[in-house]
Computed example of a mutant assay.
Amino acid sequence: MTNSETRPLLQWSAAMAMSGTIGAVVLESGAAAPAVAFARCFVGGTLLVLWCLARGWLPAWRPSKRDLGLAVLGGLFLVGNWVLLFASYALSSISVSTVVYHTQPLILVGLAAAFLGEKVAKSHLVRAAIAFGGVTLISLSAHGEDGKPVQLAGIGLALGAAVLYAGASFVAKQLKHIRPHLLAAVQTTVGAVLLAPVLLVTPLPTAPRELLWLVLLGTVHTALMYVLMYASIGKLPTTTVALLSYLYPVVAVLVDVAFYGHRPTWPEALGMLAVLAAALSPQRGGQSAKNAQVSRATDPCGTRTPARRS
């Protein structure tokens, strides 16, 4: 494997592993979900804006009213998705919420069929049935760290987050011509402005340790993670991206088991495997898996990734 192949592979793997530790960072911060989302938007968005300024992308951007409106709408979906997902961690568990959240690729296909007229293959319907059957199995069998069944509200919030994520990705499909770093900077800025008034009700923590967790979320798990993803995904085959994307939920489950005492039951584990197998398996299409390329994919943060350049 050449250096040109190894570097994007390591970058994407690192980004997915970082994603898997987001739940732990959110819980350790001790802050309410809206405050955590604000911190992520403010810190991460500021760094992304500075990155875009340094690269000269922001000064050269001249968006139309349509593009700006869609970018703002996508930002609303993206931030709402974070709030719901972060809130779900405390009501279920990191692993349960993360796995249920990964139904979003299937929801996105449904949105594309409903609003763009894209055809839905029978195989997708089968995968959707398997995934949501897995969610049902998780809902009936999962237990929290106290040994009690997880709250269905937590699973509902994770599903709601998946719907909003799919909405953000759907909007991003209409903005394929905008550089993804720039779109992410705009959307996180929108999120910071939108969530700032919420701090009157759910303020940021005052303890230095808790604030450091939020700074970590904004710097490492947002700005750095976005840069790593966008620098790598367009250079990797679709099958490689799909395979390494499993690092996100797998790391989340391992963190939950190792540090928060979560012990999945066998039915719960089976449900998790069903969701991940159905939602993250690469699509079979006319192009061979070996030669498949990422052309207009979406990333785990809900924004568009760049086309692969030859």
Results as ranks from 00 to 15, higher is better:
residue 211 L to R: 09
residue 301 C to F: 13
residue 178 I to L: 08
residue 75 G to L: 10
residue 251 V to P: 02
residue 134 G to F: 10
residue 137 L to P: 01
residue 150 V to W: 00
residue 167 G to A: 11
residue 23 G to P: 14
residue 297 A to K: 02
residue 188 T to R: 01
residue 66 R to F: 01
residue 151 Q to K: 11
residue 126 V to E: 03
residue 165 Y to A: 06
residue 67 D to V: 01
residue 173 K to P: 01
residue 182 L to D: 05
residue 75 G to S: 07
residue 22 I to R: 12
residue 246 Y to I: 07
residue 25 V to Y: 13
residue 149 P to S: 04
residue 106 L to W: 12
residue 297 A to Q: 03
residue 39 A to R: 05
residue 39 A to E: 00
residue 183 L to K: 02
residue 186 V to A: 01
residue 33 A to T: 13
residue 11 Q to V: 03
residue 36 V to K: 12
residue 159 L to C: 08
residue 70 L to W: 00
residue 260 Y to R: 15
residue 55 R to Y: 02
residue 109 V to Y: 07
residue 286 G to D: 06
residue 111 L to M: 06
residue 228 L to G: 11
residue 101 Y to I: 02
residue 43 V to M: 06
residue 223 A to T: 10
residue 193 V to M: 06
residue 64 S to K: 15
residue 186 V to G: 02
residue 233 I to G: 07
residue 106 L to K: 06
residue 146 D to L: 01
residue 239 T to S: 07
residue 122 K to M: 00
residue 173 K to W: 01
residue 207 A to F: 05
residue 183 L to F: 10
residue 221 H to Y: 14
residue 97 S to T: 02
residue 176 K to M: 11
residue 62 R to V: 09
residue 301 C to G: 09
residue 170 F to Q: 05
residue 290 K to W: 12
residue 5 E to P: 00
residue 235 K to H: 14
residue 205 P to W: 07
residue 181 H to G: 06
residue 222 T to Q: 13
residue 167 G to H: 11
residue 88 S to H: 14
residue 70 L to Q: 03
residue 101 Y to T: 03
residue 249 P to G: 14
residue 257 V to L: 08
residue 203 P to Y: 14
residue 80 G to D: 03
residue 147 G to A: 03
residue 306 P to V: 10
residue 222 T to Y: 06
residue 250 V to E: 06
residue 291 N to P: 00
residue 164 L to F: 10
residue 116 L to C: 05
residue 246 Y to M: 12
residue 115 F to C: 02
residue 243 L to A: 14
residue 157 L to P: 09
residue 172 A to Q: 10
residue 182 L to K: 00
residue 227 V to L: 10
residue 56 G to A: 05
residue 268 E to V: 00
residue 246 Y to R: 09
residue 252 A to Q: 14
residue 191 G to Q: 03
residue 303 T to E: 02
residue 75 G to N: 11
residue 11 Q to C: 08
residue 45 G to K: 00
residue 121 A to F: 08
residue 34 P to N: 11
residue 207 A to K: 00
residue 307 A to G: 00
residue 242 A to E: 11
residue 291 N to L: 13
residue 82 W to S: 00
residue 284 R to P: 01
residue 244 L to C: 05
residue 107 I to G: 02
residue 58 L to S: 04
residue 128 A to Y: 12
residue 78 L to F: 12
residue 288 S to T: 13
residue 212 L to I: 14
residue 282 P to H: 12
residue 299 D to G: 14
residue 2 T to I: 09
residue 96 V to W: 07
residue 155 I to F: 07
residue 79 V to T: 15
residue 194 L to W: 15
residue 79 V to C: 13
residue 154 G to S: 09
residue 176 K to G: 15
residue 125 L to Q: 08
residue 182 L to H: 05
residue 117 G to S: 07
residue 274 A to M: 09
residue 121 A to Q: 14
residue 94 I to G: 09
residue 229 M to V: 14
residue 66 R to L: 08
residue 85 L to Y: 15
residue 138 I to S: 06
residue 111 L to E: 04
residue 100 V to G: 12
residue 264 P to A: 13
residue 298 T to G: 07
residue 205 P to A: 03
residue 257 V to G: 05
residue 224 L to Y: 04
residue 77 F to V: 01
residue 193 V to A: 13
residue 34 P to D: 14
residue 137 L to Y: 03
